[in-house]
Design a protein around this nucleic acid. Structure first.
Length: 804
DNA sequence: AGCACGCCGACT
DNA sequence: GTCGGCGTGCTC
C-alpha cells in the first residue's frame, strides 16, 4: 500500500479524479485516507487530499508525494464517504466538496517565487537584477511581473542561476505559546526546593505552584499569577528544575465571559410528551427524523438541551445548527451554561484562526457539542448521537455556491450513518418538512402552547391604503404611532421591523394595493428601468409599466423601496426624544457590534430597536411589549414562489418577539395587502390554515413539495450565445425526461446580467426522473471545452432556494 | 487552474 | 527571418 490516490486542488472537470502518487517510505505510517498532502502537479506543487491507498496503479511512472500536511487525517472515513455522496448530489467537483467540509484555514495558499540557485552569488546576475536580491535570496514572482523583469529572470533560470519555486502554505498557523512545566518528578521537585537558597522566594513559589499543578502552564500566566520575573524562571531553567516548550493554545472567542452553570429545567407536560420519542430514538439507536413544531416561546430549546444531555450521557456527540442570523450571544450562552467547556461554537463572526481552533477542539474530541451555522454540519465528530436543526425553515441552510448543498439533507445523511435522530425545529416549518411529516416520513412532535401558558400576542393588521386615503403619508400608521408614544411613556421597549429585502423593485398602487402579477405564474412582475417594462422571471411574460392602476385607475402607482436609515430619520423628526438603536448591515458590520448593540438594548439604553432580518429571530427580551412591522409586503412581492411562505414565516417570527414574559405583547403589522392569506393568517398565527392554503397554490402551480426543482443557469458575455445554449440545454433535457416533467425556459435570470455576462436559465419541475442527474452531467461534459476557454458558464442547482 | 507546446501576424 | 499572440491539451 505505498500508492496514494489523491484529489488535487484544481477545481476543473478534467482534474476531477484521483491522481496516483508514490508514498515515500518515511511517510508510510503518516499518510492515510483523508490526509492533506503536497504533491507535484506538472511543474507546480499543489495541495491534495488522499482518498485511497493501493498497491498498484495503471500509471507506469508515478511521482512521489512531497510531504503530508497533517499528522492526523483531516477527513475521516465517514466524511470521505459523505463527500462522495455530496459530489453526486450537488454535481460539484470533489475538491470543492472536501474544501467545503473543512475550515477555510486548511485551504492552501500558493506562492510562486524566484530563488537564487545554490552556489550562485547575487553578483553573477546582470546589473539590473542584482538589486532584486539585495537582502534575500528570493523574490516573489508577482513582484517580478510588476517590475517587468520576468523575461530577464527566465533567461537566468534557463542558465541555471535562478530557479522557479512553487510553495504551498497553510493559511493559519497554530497559535503557539511558550509554556513552562516541571522537569522533575514530585519527590525530586520537593528535594530541589529544599536545596534552594532561602532568599530565592520566587523560585520557591514556582516550585510550590508546580507541586500543586504539575501540568504545563503558559509562561506569561505563570509570571503574572506569582508576581515573579522572567529571571526567576531562567534560573530554574538553568538548574534543570523546569523546562519550556511551545504548546498550541486556542484562540477562545468566549474567554472573556463567565458562564454560570445551569441545570435542566422542569419540562411541561407538552414538552415531556414531545421529548419522549426523541429520547427513545437515542436509546434504541434508530435513525428517525423528527419535526418539532412548536410556537414561539414554547420551549423548543429546552428539549434540545435535554436531548443532548441524554446523548452526552451515552458518551456520544451532538451537532446543533442554528441560522447564522440568530446565532446570537443569547443562544450561545444557553448552551455554554448547560454544557460549559464541552461546547464549540462555529459562526461567521469568528476569525479564520478562531474557526480553525474550534474545529480542532472537535477533531481532538475536546468538545462534545457543536453549535454553529450551516457548515457546522461537517463537524468531524465520530460518534454522533443527535443532530438538531433549529429554525428548520430558514433558507440560509442552503448554500448558494458550489457545492450547493442543503444542511438538512446532509444532516439526514449523516444521521443515517450514525443511526441517530435528527430534530428539525420550527414555529413555522417549511412546507417541504411539514408535508413530509404529514406523509409520515418525519415524525411530527407538536408544542402548541407557550410555556406558562402565556398568550400569543394580539396582532393588529393596519391597512396602509386606508392611511393614505385619510391623508397620512408617513411610514407610520396612526395606530402604530399612538402605540409607540404610549410605550415611550410607560418606559417599555419595542422593536420596529423593516424588511429590507424589498429592493428588487415592484410596482404597486398606493390606493388599492394592487401589485402587478404574472398571469401565468402568480409571481410578482419585476420592474426594469432600462426598458420601462414589467417582467416575469419564470416564464418570460412581459408587460408595460402602467401609468394608472389597472384595478382602480388611481395615478398613485409607483415602485417601492425604503431603508432603515430613512425610518430612523423620520421617527426622530416625529419624536426627537426617542432613543433608537438601529441594527442593519451598516451598524453591525464590525466584529462584536451585534452583541454590543443588543446588550445596550437589554440594559435599557434605548427604547426602540429598529432593524432588518437580523432582529427577527432568537431575541428574548422581557421588556418588549410592542412589535411593529413597517411594511409586510416587501417580501411578498419578490419574484419567488416561496414569497408567501417567507412572508408568513417572517411575520410570525417577528410577532413572537413580543410579550414573551410577564408583560403582554402587542403586534402591529402595516401592509398594503391585508387580505393576502399570508398576512392575514400570520395575524392569527394560524400555521395550519396557512399550510393548507399554500399547499393548494403549490399544487396548482407545480411547485415543491409536490414537484422537485432543478435550475440550470447559463451565462455568457454575448446575449445570443447565452440564449442559444440555454435553448439547446432545455431541448436536450426535455428529450431525456418523461412527459410528466416540465421544462421551462430559456428565461432571463432574475438578475439578467452580472459583470457584463448575460444570464439565462432553465427550470425543471419533476416528480421522479432518475435520468435527470445523468442528463445534467452529460450537459456539463458536453460544454466542457467551451466552459474552459469560451467564457461560457453553466451552473446546476438541484433543488434551488434562490432562483438567481 | 496553470503551464507548455505550437502554429499564424507585426516587427528589428 | 524572430517575437509574441492565445488556442489546445495535459497534469499521476
Amino acid at each position: 500500500m505505498n500508492i496514494a490516490g489523491v484529489i488535487v486542488d484544481v477545481p476543473a472537470k478534467q482534474t476531477d479524479k484521483t491522481f496516483d502518487y508514490k508514498i515515500p517510505d518515511k511517510f508510510l505510517d503518516v499518510i492515510k485516507p483523508g490526509t492533506r498532502v503536497i504533491v507535484p502537479f506538472g511543474p507546480r506543487k499543489i495541495q491534495g487530499f488522499v482518498t485511497e491507498l493501493k498497491d498498484q496503479s495503471s500509471f507506469a511512472k508515478l511521482r512521489s508525494i512531497i510531504e503530508p500536511l497533517d499528522l492526523t487525517p483531516v477527513l475521516n472515513e465517514e466524511l470521505l464517504l459523505l463527500g462522495a455522496w455530496l459530489t453526486e448530489h450537488t454535481l460539484s467537483y470533489k475538491i470543492s466538496v472536501y474544501q467545503a467540509m473543512l475550515p477555510a484555514a486548511l485551504k492552501a495558499k500558493y506562492e510562486k517565487k524566484l530563488v537564487l540557485s545554490k552556489g550562485t552569488e547575487r553578483s553573477e546576475l546582470p546589473n539590473d537584477l542584482v538589486d532584486l536580491f539585495l537582502d534575500h535570496r528570493e523574490i516573489k514572482w508577482d513582484d517580478a511581473v510588476a517590475k517587468g523583469l520576468v523575461q530577464k529572470l527566465q533567461k537566468e533560470a534557463a542558465a541555471g542561476r535562478v530557479e522557479v519555486v512553487y510553495q504551498v502554505k497553510d493559511r493559519v498557523r497554530k497559535k503557539m505559546l511558550k509554556h513552562i512545566s516541571p522537569a522533575l518528578e514530585t519527590e525530586q521537585l520537593q528535594a530541589a526546593r529544599t536545596e534552594l537558597p532561602s532568599q530565592a522566594s520566587g523560585q520557591q513559589a514556582v516550585i510550590d505552584f508546580f507541586l500543586e499543578h504539575p501540568e504545563p502552564v503558559e509562561q506569561r500566566l505563570l509570571l503574572t499569577t506569582l508576581g515573579i520575573s522572567q529571571a526567576t524562571v531562567q534560573s530554574l531553567l538553568k538548574k534543570g528544575i523546569v523546562k519550556t516548550e511551545e504548546l498550541e493554545v486556542y484562540r477562545d472567542p468566549y474567554s472573556e465571559r463567565k458562564f454560570e452553570k445551569r441545570v435542566s429545567l422542569k419540562l411541561t407536560v407538552e414538552q415531556e410528551t414531545a421529548i419522549r420519542p426523541i429520547l427513545s430514538s437515542i436509546e434504541t439507536e434508530q435513525h428517525e427524523v423528527f419535526l418539532l413544531y412548536g410556537v414561539t416561546g414554547s420551549g423548543k430549546t429546552e428539549i434540545y438541551l435535554q436531548s443532548i444531555q441524554e446523548v452526552l450521557r451515552k458518551g456520544k456527540e451532538a451537532i446543533v445548527l442554528v441560522p447564522e442570523i440568530s446565532l446570537t450571544p443569547q443562544m450561545v450562552t444557553r448552551f455554554k451554561e448547560r454544557f460549559g467547556d464541552l461546547v464549540a461554537v462555529m459562526h461567521s463572526g469568528l476569525s479564520a484562526g478562531e474557526k480553525y481552533d474550534e474545529w480542532r477542539k472537535i477533531q481532538r474530541k475536546e468538545v462534545k457539542v457543536v453549535v454553529g451555522a450551516r457548515s457546522a454540519i461537517f463537524a468531524p465528530f465520530e460518534n454522533i448521537g443527535i443532530i438538531i436543526i433549529d429554525e428548520e425553515h430558514e433558507t440560509s441552510y442552503k448554500q448558494e455556491e458550489n457545492p450547493r448543498y442543503h444542511a438538512r439533507d446532509v444532516a439526514i445523511q449523516r444521521a443515517k450513518t450514525f443511526a441517530c435522530p435528527v430534530v428539525l425545529g420550527s414555529a413555522t416549518p417549511s412546507l417541504e418538512s411539514f408535508a413530509r411529516a404529514q406523509k409520515g416520513r418525519y415524525t411530527l412532535l407538536s408544542l402548541p402552547k407557550r410555556m406558562n401558558n402565556q398568550a400569543l400576542p394580539a396582532v393588529e393588521i393596519v391597512d396602509m391604503r386606508e392611511e393614505l386615503r385619510s391623508g397620512n403619508r408617513s411610514m407610520f400608521s396612526v395606530r402604530l404611532f399612538e402605540k409607540i408614544k404610549d410605550r415611550l411613556e410607560k418606559k417599555e421597549q419595542m422593536v420596529l421591523f423593516l424588511n429590507k429585502r424589498g429592493h428588487s423593485s415592484f410596482v404597486m398602487c398606493r390606493d388599492c394595493g394592487y401589485v402587478m402579477n404574472c398571469p401565468h405564474c402568480d409571481i410578482t412582475l419585476t420592474y426594469h428601468r432600462y426598458n420601462e417594462q414589467m417582467k416575469c422571471h419564470y416564464c418570460g411574460y412581459e408587460d408595460k409599466v402602467p401609468t394608472v392602476c389597472p384595478e382602480c385607475h388611481s395615478e398613485h402607482i409607483r415602485y417601492f423601496g425604503t431603508g432603515t436609515q430613512k425610518v430612523e430619520e423620520e421617527l426622530l423628526k416625529l419624536i426627537p426624544e426617542a432613543r433608537i438603536i438601529r441594527m442593519d448591515v451598516d451598524t453591525t458590520g464590525r466584529k462584536g457590534s451585534h452583541e454590543r448593540l443588543l446588550n445596550a438594548f437589554q440594559d435599557g439604553q434605548a427604547d426602540i430597536l429598529l432593524g432588518t432580518q437580523m432582529i427577527a429571530k432568537g431575541l428574548d427580551f422581557p421588556n418588549i411589549t410592542l412589535v411593529g412591522v413597517l411594511s409586510a409586503d416587501t417580501m411578498l412581492n419578490l419574484p419567488d414562489f416561496r414569497s408567501s411562505e417567507k412572508t408568513f414565516q417572517l411575520l410570525t417570527q417577528v410577532s413572537g418577539r413580543a410579550g414573551r414574559h410577564k408583560l403582554p405583547g402587542e403586534v402591529v403589522i402595516q401592509t398594503y395587502s391585508p387580505e393576502h392569506y399570508s398576512v392575514e393568517l400570520a395575524g392569527t398565527q394560524d400555521y395550519d390554515r396557512f399550510y393548507q392554503q399554500e399547499m393548494l397554490m403549490r399544487k396548482g402551480h407545480q411547485y415543491p413539495p409536490f414537484y422537485y426543482l432543478s435550475l440550470v443557469t447559463v451565462s455568457h458575455e454575448e446575449l445570443m450565445k447565452a440564449v442559444a445554449v440555454t435553448e439547446k440545454i432545455a431541448q436536450f433535457i426535455h428529450s431525456r425526461l418523461s412527459k410528466d416533467a416540465v421544462v421551462l425556459g430559456p428565461v432571463a435570470s432574475p438578475i439578467p446580467r452580472i459583470n457584463d455576462r448575460y444570464r439565462y436559465q432553465c427550470l425543471i419541475k419533476y416528480k421522479k426522473e432518475p435520468e435527470l442527474s445523468t442528463a445534467l452531467k452529460s450537459i456539463l461534459e458536453h460544454y466542457q471545452q467551451e466552459m474552459g476557454s469560451g467564457g461560457l458558464q453553466i451552473s446546476v442547482d438541484l433543488n434551488p432556494y434562490i432562483m438567481m
